[in-house]
């Protein structure tokens, strides 16, 4: 039973999840683009594309003068995202998977680094969840979707960490749980704010394009 589930999760399950993820995200992005945007008839002072591209990149590095809750949100946010991406793209087992699917890989980072990144990401996520409950602004903005996406993003990190260290359950069970949690995330992501992994760059482009048009470097 266990073995069958694992085989399914590694095979058909992964195929379905990938299809839903790719098709869902593509549809989302395309649908947004096709809504269209009226070009401006005013005289441009600068370039939309230069502004758009610049903001796509630069907005990741903004750290405006913040205090308290703002600074916490930015730092915890960075720790989570960077930690998550490091474990996703630089764990040797993940790279092996990529190589099996796409035919190429890249150098992995040492396990020690991955361990630190994973723990920090998990810690940041917990801190961010707590903050979402106790901060008045976040409480006002938050709903079911925020807690759903938190859970779906948290489970792969948690089960992955447990899997690497063989904690809690036997190895094959942990493997099944981990892969299943990833597939769950992939299947739900396109229908939630997690689409921001792609649409962030579109939003930043539109924003930067307006500034670029006006000759403003911001």
């Amino acid at each position: 039973m266990d073995q069958e589930l694992l085989l399914w999760v590694r095979g058909t399950g992964l195929q379905i999840a990938t299809a839903v993820f790719v098709l869902g995200m593509s549809y989302r992005v395309l649908h947004l683009l096709l809504l269209g945007r009226k070009p401006s008839l005013a005289v441009a002072r600068g370039s939309e594309w230069a502004g758009g591209l610049r903001t796509m990149w630069q907005r990741s590095f903004m750290l405006p003068s913040l205090s308290g809750r703002g600074l916490f949100t930015v730092i915890a946010g960075y720790v989570f995202h960077v930690g998550f991406l490091i474990t996703l793209f630089f764990l040797s087992q993940h790279i092996d998977l990529f190589r099996a699917v796409f035919g190429f890989g890249w150098p992995a980072l040492p396990r020690g680094v991955i361990d630190v990144a994973a723990v920090l990401a998990i810690g940041a996520m917990v801190a961010l969840l707590v903050h979402r409950f106790i901060d008045p602004v976040k409480r006002l903005l938050s709903g079911f979707e925020d807690f759903l996406t938190w859970t779906l993003s948290f489970l792969p990190l948690l089960t992955g960490f447990m899997l690497l260290r063989n904690i809690g359950f036997e190895y094959l069970t942990l493997l099944t749980l981990h892969i299943a949690s990833v597939e769950l995330l992939m299947v739900v992501a396109p229908f939630t704010k997690l689409a921001h992994m792609f649409t962030t760059f579109m939003a930043r482009w539109y924003n930067g394009a307006v500034n670029g048009f006006k000759g403003i470097n911001a």
Partner: peptide, 22 residues
């Protein structure tokens, strides 16, 4: 009023509340 930018912005908001700080 919902054009590509507006729909993209709503799709992308992660409810971080940093806009309040500004």
């Amino acid at each position: 009023q919902i054009d590509a930018p507006v729909a993209t912005f709503f799709s992308t908001c992660v409810h971080c509340g940093l806009c309040a700080e500004s």
